[in-house]
């Protein structure tokens, strides 16, 4: 017992364990995975009812509607990202692990994206059909949502980390995060619109990729710093 302890395995094992644990927890709490998808479908159902069932009109606004609804659905799922870890004390434990906190944060965000962002991107074409989205823009919808929701998860995790210790963090979270989502929304819905008219799609996707690269570089540090603040707030 008098000998100093040295970790026998590197950070990769910890990151994999974190990812596995979060995927397992999300899959056991199936509501957390399914609710954002149902919300997405519901919001899309509201628009034809609120605006007009006219396919020509819907086709014009479909890229924007699909993107806004997916963005709100992704936002809805964020509040729980760190909250259960915070409530049961796991958060302070993994912040004290002798591992780079930013990497562990990335693993959590990745698990979140795999089970919210990616499914949203995959069911979006179905909802696109319901909004009479012109043919030829479906895969642009999928790719732009998959790329975009990854950025949304990373940026949103910063907000979730900042508000995890607050009793009424949910509304505040949207206030903090939505303005930061605007560039992703612009280029995401722009990509779908560009695919509809048949021009400039690659540029949009490239910019979405660039936004994701920046978010990947900076967000994990901000998330880690925000979590440290929240557990001592």
């Amino acid at each position: 017992m008098n000998r100093p302890n040295e970790p026998q395995r590197g950070a990769d094992a910890a990151v994999v364990a974190m990812l596995k644990r979060d995927l397992m927890l999300l899959l056991r709490q199936r509501g957390d995975v399914i609710n954002p998808l149902v919300f997405f479908a519901l919001v899309i159902t509201l628009f034809p009812i609120g605006i007009s069932p006219e396919p020509a009109l819907l086709a014009v606004v479909a890229p924007g509607l699909l993107w806004v609804a997916a963005l709100l659905a992704a936002l809805l799922s964020l509040d729980g990202l760190f909250r259960s870890d915070f409530d049961d004390g796991s958060l302070e434990q993994w912040l004290l692990a002798p591992q780079p906190t930013a990497l562990l944060c990335m693993a959590k965000v990745l698990a979140h994206w795999l089970l919210t962002g990616l499914p949203l991107a995959l069911i979006a074409p179905l909802l696109g059909v319901m909004l009479a989205l012109p043919a030829g823009s479906y895969w642009a919808l999928c790719v732009s949502l998959a790329l975009g929701t990854a950025s949304l998860s990373l940026i949103g995790a910063i907000g979730a980390a900042l508000t995890v210790g607050l009793a009424r963090g949910g509304v505040l979270l949207s206030l903090l995060v939505l303005p930061l989502y605007i560039p992703v929304l612009i280029f995401g819905s722009g990509a779908v619109s560009a695919a509809v008219v048949g021009s400039g799609l690659a540029a949009h996707l490239a910019i979405l990729g660039a936004l994701l690269a920046v978010a990947l570089m900076l967000a994990p540090w901000a998330i880690a710093a925000a979590l440290r603040i929240s557990i001592n707030g």
Binding site: M24, L25, R28, Q29, S84, D88, G89, S90
Partner: peptide
């Protein structure tokens, strides 16, 4: 810590 750090799930 105060909270046991045991996940319910």
């Amino acid at each position: 810590g105060h909270a046991p750090g045991v996940k319910a799930g």
